[in-house]
Design a protein around this nucleic acid. Structure first.
Lengths: 247, 247
DNA sequence: GGCTCCATTTAACACAGGTTAAGGCGCCCG
DNA sequence: CGGGCGCCTTAACCTGTGTTAAATGGAGCC
């Protein structure tokens, strides 16, 4: 069974057996972290990238008066801050939503890896660019979409990302968090988030199976509701580029 | 006179004369583009990163029904999409706000540069991470700050970034665009943006000198208004990392 | 100087979403 | 089996921001 990171990268890069082995070894030994704990604290100096093997986390940021925004969800196979080594201090916090299994990749090691193997390098680059694309889409959603569209978008994004790493099935997924987290990701109050979910439910765009099940009865209608098109860079790289990586 | 890119990177990395020369040569020959023209169209395949030498641009995204969000401003010294080579299609559009002088760096060349010189590589990495930090801060601003705080934040961000490349002075800057652009960056209607600017003006946080002058009479009070702390990774990299780049 | 054009401001009104508070419901635990 | 506790939902009300439209003001031009 390939690791989630390999699953993700395999759709973008042609990976040889050696690459797969190298990627599978990334972030060992694995460490654990209990649900609710913070792995990264905004403002702290960071010395390693965090590769999540198993479990869910969020990156978020809290304003002086407690208002919080969830920047994104960190899923298995995600590298939180692949560019640590050029980043002086964390500009976000990271918190485990479930018990977590993860690994660290020290800044210096990232640098060496990237320099030594163009393919692993590309993997880190891609991870960084992917993360940025997600953040940009999120920005558009929060900046210009209505609550209804925005929540539809977030659910679709999660579902899409989970399917890539085989953690969702064709008609829905399990998400281990409460509505407060989703509200902070959507930039809504939890009350209005609840209203909005009920509407999506009533309209048949989603179906909730408590406590944590989200079914998507009609993917096409959900996509239609969200006004934005899929642009998470999940398609394979052009051959031209791939060849340059093979040296 | 160092190029804006060099000015920016010099605060993060210790650059030798050779590095400076290499960076100064990036993105030649320079090309021109008239104000208002699009340089990148969302959904198109991109084949080069764009290094802006002179002038202002924005990256933005438009929904099906015309609602638009400005993702960020592209200033001299900024590399738009340093990670092009791992990115399949543009997920944003880019438009010149003024006449522009810029250069292209072909995807394949980025890859070679990055692999050949660890220092130039780090420069691209840093540019990508910096861009992402800006986007994240923007996300927090739009997601959880009031219109007042948010506009204060955007003006402060522009001012800060411009000072890094010597394009602003100690008490303000010139920004060559109308309120509609700023409104799309703040995720507000232009009417409410105008109201908000007037309030900021009345409160003495900013002073506008038409048509394009923005004075900041009291930087401390502006920062106070914005609830968020500077986190654009503009501080030097740790020595430990720098040493690894010198090989 | 007066006209036109464009960007900005003001005004009046509408509505999405926030706030506060109360109610429902399932789940754990005694 | 009953009580209590979290979480989610509903309701009523309030406010910030959007919308539409008209007024103002400055820059260029005749």
């Amino acid at each position: 069974m390939p690791t989630p990171l390999v699953l993700k990268l395999a759709r973008v890069l042609d990976l040889g057996a050696a690459d797969v082995a190298a990627l599978a070894a990334l972030g060992s030994p694995s460490r654990r972290c209990a649900a609710g704990r913070s792995l990264v604290e905004a403002g702290r100096r960071m010395s390693a990238a965090i590769l999540v093997h198993e479990g869910w986390a969020v990156r978020h940021r809290t304003l002086a008066d407690g208002r919080r925004l969830v920047l994104d969800f960190v899923l298995p196979g995600d590298i939180c801050d692949p560019a640590v080594f050029v980043t002086s201090r964390a500009d976000f916090s990271m918190q485990a939503l479930t018990d977590l299994r993860y690994g660290l990749v020290q800044s210096e090691d990232v640098l060496d890896l990237v320099n030594r193997s163009p393919r692993i390098g590309a993997a880190f680059w891609w991870a960084e660019a992917h993360e940025e694309a997600i953040t940009r889409a999120h920005l558009v959603a929060i900046g210009r979409m209505s609550a209804y569209e925005r929540v539809a978008y977030l659910l679709w994004e999660l579902w899409t990302r989970l399917r890539v790493v085989n953690l969702a099935d064709a008609d829905g997924f399990e998400a281990p968090f409460g509505q407060d987290v989703l509200a902070d990701a959507a930039g809504l109050s939890y009350v209005h988030l609840s209203r909005t979910l009920c509407r999506l439910d009533r309209d048949g765009l989603i179906h909730r199976r408590p406590p944590h099940g989200w079914r998507i009865p009609d993917a096409a209608r959900l996509r239609e509701a969200m006004q934005i098109s899929d642009a998470l860079h999940l398609t394979p790289l052009p051959r031209r580029i791939q060849q340059r990586l093979s040296r």
